[in-house]
Amino acid sequence: MTLPEFLLLLLRIWGSIGTVVVLIFLAWGIDRIDEDAQGAYVFRLLLVPGILLIWPLVLWRWWQIETERVAWFDRYRPSRRHGPAILAMSAAIVALVVIGLNARQYWPKDIVPVQLSERQ
């Protein structure tokens, strides 16, 4: 199996499990954990792509809510990783631009063809 085939297989497996999670969560789970969703159905279609993409996170949160593992407090604890995220992005952009432009080539129109040896 080649790497592209393997990646495609992973993608299919991810999508298949995601589809199952979509069906279970939207048909049953969401009503259990979010009272705002009770009686609201059209908006659930908008959740389908998100669940397909990050279904492990969905399952993790669902489990957390069902088992009441999250203190009230965690909901309101703001992330303080903003600075590192910005610095990482800035450094990556500068590095990519420097490396990329440095590798840029120009059409070597002045290099002439050279005959190294006569016909054999």
Binding site: P108, I111, P113, V114, Q115, L116, S117, E118, R119, Q120
Partner: peptide, 10 residues
């Protein structure tokens, strides 16, 4: 066919 030797091209 006619061989034309070894070349270095850019």
């Amino acid at each position: 066919s006619e061989p034309l030797g070894r070349w270095r091209l850019a």
